[in-house]
Amino acid sequence: MSSEAAYSSADYIRHHLTNMTFGQHADGHWGLAHSAQEAAEMGFWAFHLDSLGWSLGLAFVMFFFLRSVAKKAEAGIPSGAQNFAEWIIEFIDSSVRGSFTANNPLVAPMALTIFGWVFLMNFMDLIAVDFLPALAGQIGALFGADPHHVYMKIVPSTDPNITFGMALGVFWLMLYYSVKNKGLGGFLGELAFQPFGKWGLPVNLLLEGVTLISKPISLALRLFGNMYAGEMIFILIAIMYGAGLLLGSFAGILQLGWAIFHILIITLQAFIFMTLTIVYMDMAHQEHH
């Protein structure tokens, strides 16, 4: 990285924070963006191939494992893989039972999906920051692309699109079950006539509206912010490797410490996302809150 004089630390960071974006170029043809600016100019109808690819890939891995366990699941003595899956599922099940009082067969599987998926996406943060992007650059170079313009962000949860995508999915389900359980009138009534009765309707609408909107936003931004900051620290530590032997070995210790600490963070963030989802779904099933 810093061995090349033309390639500064700022470029390095920017390279690490740019997604592999597929969209419509300014001249009208579809293709990969070659710079952060090009990616920005593609507008809304563009896709982050790296985020989507890793996120889908991880979900496939997870569900391949879970499905293979589910197919062979039996009540006898469980095998190692089944034991592991049951351990996770019982943990999720007890979390759901603890916070979710209504009866909805969707909530527990959703909690499992969220916990496992978010955990795996966060887990990509523990893979050395340069390893997969550099590999992608080399592969890109084989196809004649400039490695410096091959972008690869391997941690999907550092992409706000991913976190907002999941949060909006949860939000949509929340609205759906709210309307389904309370009726459209009941749901709107909760927004309009609480907490100050019908004479405080504008204030109520403002308060409850903000409360409602803040749910998916806080869900998405909390995960994104934590993972983005964590990723940023890994990148900054990685820059130190280029700054001489002393700082480089110090960076090694730092990276180890941060990685160990990060194991806690990634699990915690996955757990928080799941728990909040369960709580929101519970609210959607309550007649009054």
Binding site: W45, A46, F47, L52
Partner: peptide
């Protein structure tokens, strides 16, 4: 913010459905 969001939301629903149907 771009269409990645929509892709992720759709795949979220698909995986939740899959989990509810075939795993849980």
């Amino acid at each position: 913010i771009n269409a990645t969001l929509i892709g992720q939301a759709i795949s979220f629903f698909v995986f939740v459905w899959f989990c509810m149907k075939y795993v849980w």
